[in-house]
């Protein structure tokens, strides 16, 4: 998928959680949101993007994506 779009969406999510005073809770919030609502392929692509430097991701989004636990790629 268009990585720019995924980055924007991840940043929007992180921006919501930025207000959370407890940093660990904020990071967890981003990670959980991505896990609960994003298709694994999108999570995988975003994580790969982070592994390649993660350009464009805001700091909290980076941390959230960093913490993502990805399911094994399906048999598709």
């Amino acid at each position: 998928m268009n990585i720019e779009r995924l980055i924007t969406m991840a940043n929007d999510i992180a921006t919501y959680f930025t207000v959370e005073p407890d940093h660990a809770t904020a990071v967890e919030g981003v990670r959980d949101h991505l896990t609960k609502f994003w298709d694994p392929a999108m999570r995988r692509q975003l994580k790969a993007h982070l592994d390649h430097g993660g350009e464009g991701l805001n700091p909290l989004a980076r941390e959230g994506v960093e913490k993502l636990v990805l399911p094994p790629a399906s048999g598709s």
């Binding site: 998928m1 609960k36 609502f37 994003w38 298709d39 694994p40 999108m42 399911p71």
Partner: peptide
């Protein structure tokens, strides 16, 4: 057990 694609996705 994993979410699928939303319409814009």
């Amino acid at each position: 057990g994993e979410p699928g694609l939303r319409i814009p996705n």
